[in-house]
């Protein structure tokens, strides 16, 4: 069992608790002991990076510092946006000694340990599609029984690839490999690497919905039983905003959306209470019936 520091971020703490619960239940099965970080805050979600960039860097340095304090060399995230924000800040700190010194002095002054021991920040997807893929294949034996799954990557786990770098940003295959390992069939469609619209869904709803409809509509047309995403923000827009799409376009997609940890969880035989499908807005029932769960 490998120990990793676990940063769950805002959504998995609150509105997407099912993501946190299923991740905590699944992690030991694929070889990870999660050390949850207590004294951490929001990563800023691109918003603090834009509103107060220097504060963004310090907040993320603080998260990295507490991750390092656990003694683990890996900080695991379950959200695309957290992954980009933490990796970007980490890269800046690890490759600019003067900047790191200044930030560390500031952290020290407010009582936060200096960020000295380097950690690598990685998304859960990269762990299960990478170093623990063999473990995944072992535990996924309950299978998805040929369920047709549309992978939806979202943006900030692929781009900018110079900071992310796990998948080919234009031809990613980690989700496809996981779906296949879990006994499902991966559906291919062009919008799987595009934006779900979430960052502007409140400020520019019309533009955001025009983005959101593309992956859902394409997945539906390609015959998907459900979609899966590694990002809780994508999950929230894909799941909760489908009713808005219906209101706007008259199209009622009823597309069930899995969090990545739930999809693997189903194949690995997690219990109902560990999956919490009842917290989804679009019913997961049709998929569960197909699986005869």
């Amino acid at each position: 069992m490998k120990q990793v520091a676990y940063y769950k971020g805002c959504l998995a703490s609150l509105s997407a608790k099912e993501l946190d619960i299923s991740t905590q239940a699944l992690a030991p099965k694929v070889g990870y002991e999660l050390i949850e970080l207590e004294s951490v805050t929001c990563c800023g979600a691109g918003d603090i990076h834009e509103a107060e960039p220097d504060y963004y860097l310090h907040l993320n340095a603080r998260i990295l510092s507490y991750a390092a304090a656990t003694g683990a060399d890996t900080l695991m995230t379950v959200c695309n946006v957290c992954t980009l924000n933490l990796r970007q800040a980490n890269h800046q700190l690890l490759n600019d000694a003067a900047l790191r010194e200044r930030v560390n002095d500031n952290l020290e002054q407010v009582g936060v340990p200096r960020y000295e021991q380097d950690v690598d920040c990685v998304h859960f997807l990269w762990l299960v599609a990478g170093e623990s893929f063999g473990k995944l294949q072992e535990v996924a034996h309950k299978g998805l029984r040929g369920l047709r799954i549309a992978p939806f990557y979202g943006c900030q786990i692929l781009r900018p690839s110079k900071l992310m770098g796990f998948d080919d940003p234009d031809k990613p295959d980690s989700l496809e490999r996981i779906i296949a390992a879990c006994g499902g069939e991966a559906i291919d469609y062009p919008a799987k690497i595009k934006c779900c619209g979430f960052p502007i869904i409140q400020a520019r709803e019309e533009t955001a919905l025009a983005e959101l409809i593309q992956p859902i509509e394409q997945a539906k047309e390609a015959g998907a039983d459900a979609m899966v995403t590694p990002c809780p923000l994508c999950h929230l827009s894909l799941d909760a905003w489908q009713s808005k799409l219906k209101k706007q376009t008259g199209k009622d997609f009823q597309m069930p959306i899995f969090h990545l940890s739930q999809l693997i969880g189903v194949a690995a035989g997690l219990e109902d209470a560990e999956l919490r499908f009842k917290r989804h807005v679009v019913s997961m029932q049709p998929v569960l019936e197909k699986l005869a769960l």
Binding site: D54, Q88, A89, H91, Q92, S161, K162
Partner: peptide
């Protein structure tokens, strides 16, 4: 913007996929 520019030195040598 200075808060973003200060991080660019470290990002400079990174290349895309």
């Amino acid at each position: 913007a200075a808060g973003i520019v200060q991080g660019e030195k470290a990002l400079m040598h990174l290349a895309h996929h």
